[in-house]
């Protein structure tokens, strides 16, 4: 353990923790844009700078370990001035279109500009205009709004292990891009949308939310029904209708991670082709039936086959879209109730 002083308050911290971690554990606010606890430390945005007694320069709290006896100021005049400058510079190279930006209300850059009272940039100069990539139906990329925090690059490389995007060029002209500036598509990435969920600005957005303001939705936590992993996420519901999905970072199973299906395939809920009641084929045609009718029908047929041809005449094939528990119960039913080992799963290849 080490003892440090933060804003005049003595704090005991575990050795090896960064200043930022100590602050957050003690509910002391330090703003960040490029930091994400699930990703490697980057130290690029410089918004989290704090004043450490005896240090020549301001230090980035996300990269600096808290050491014994450190005396830290997180909101001194010098710190606030520097943070305002960081925000000012970022805004000087950023469209000021918060009124119509998809990210408004859910934007980290907007939040810190609000908190530090930076209304508009004071620096005038070149703003490079990049083409917006909106060829893909679910992910839109607007490089004009990118602040180069690199979270998307890191999440794609470190969590998703795809490395579909990286920094391109350097200096003021640096961007985050795809190889040879190809539009984002299934050709080059898995469209998991991890990059979208870590993006602090409107540079990467989930197009399913177009037309929806973040404060208009109610979040309903649920378990993804698309495979046996059982990821937890929030359904975003507007006016009684599911608009899209956002991750729930405290999920035990998946944290903030989601795949292409879980994140983007909620639209199937409203598909006109969706089967909403059991169907029984009568005279060559499927006819709607009640659950009782359907289950009775199945039980009767299974019993009949078992009695006539023995249990091994029956085989069961379960679905990858069932949960683990459901799959467990299914094989239990096949073995105990039917009495056969003929049970398999569509994803067992």
């Amino acid at each position: 353990m080490v003892t440090i002083t933060m804003n005049g308050k003595e704090i005991k911290a575990e050795k090896g923790k960064t200043i930022l971690e100590c602050a957050r554990e003690n509910n002391i606010y330090i703003p960040t844009l490029c930091y994400d606890e699930t990703l490697s430390i980057y130290g690029g945005c410089r918004l989290c700078v704090v004043e450490v007694e005896g240090a020549r320069n301001l230090v980035a709290s996300c990269t600096t370990e808290a050491t014994e006896g450190m005396v830290i100021q997180t909101e001194s005049e010098k710190v606030v001035k520097a943070r305002k400058n960081v925000i000012d510079l970022l805004l000087s190279n950023h469209p000021i279109d918060c009124l119509t930006c998809e990210k408004a209300g859910n934007c980290d850059l907007q939040d810190v500009a609000y908190r530090y009272g930076v209304r508009e940039p004071s620096y005038i100069g070149e703003v490079i205009e990049y083409a917006v990539d909106d060829a893909n139906p679910v992910i839109a990329r607007d490089p004009n709004k990118c602040i180069l925090c690199g979270k998307c690059v890191r999440v794609c490389d470190e969590i998703q292990v795809t490395h579909a995007i990286d920094f391109v060029d350097r200096g003021f002209g640096a961007t985050v891009g795809t190889p040879f500036n190809e539009p984002i598509s299934y050709e080059i990435c898995r469209l998991c949308g991890q990059c979208v969920s870590v993006c602090p600005t409107g540079a990467l957005t989930n197009r399913q939310f177009e037309g929806t303001r973040p404060w208009e939705v109610e979040k309903v936590t649920t378990t993804c029904s698309l495979c046996g992993v059982g990821c937890t996420y929030d359904l975003n519901v507007k006016d009684g209708r599911v608009v899209g999905v956002t991750p729930k970072p405290d999920s035990i199973v998946n944290g903030s991670s989601l795949c292409v299906k879980g994140r983007f395939h909620t639209d199937f809920a409203y598909s006109p082709d969706r089967i909403t009641t059991p169907l029984i084929k009568k005279d060559g045609e499927f006819v709607e039936a009640s659950w009782d009718e359907a289950l009775d029908f199945i039980a009767e047929k299974l019993n009949k086959i078992k009695a006539e041809d023995g249990p091994d005449a029956i085989a069961g094939l379960s679905s990858a879209r069932c949960t683990n528990e459901e799959n467990y119960l299914f094989q239990k039913m096949m073995k105990a109730a039917i009495g056969t080992n003929n049970v398999d799963h569509c994803a067992r290849t």
């Binding site: 980057y42 410089r46 510079l89 620096y123 005038i124 180069l148 690199g150 200096g171 003021f172 640096a174």
Partner: peptide, 21 residues
């Protein structure tokens, strides 16, 4: 330096450009 900035941190990437301008 502006041309040689790697572009990683905000002060150098954006700041040197504005100073140059």
């Amino acid at each position: 330096t502006c041309k040689e900035s790697c572009g990683k941190c905000t002060p150098c990437r954006e700041g040197t450009k504005r100073m140059l301008e």
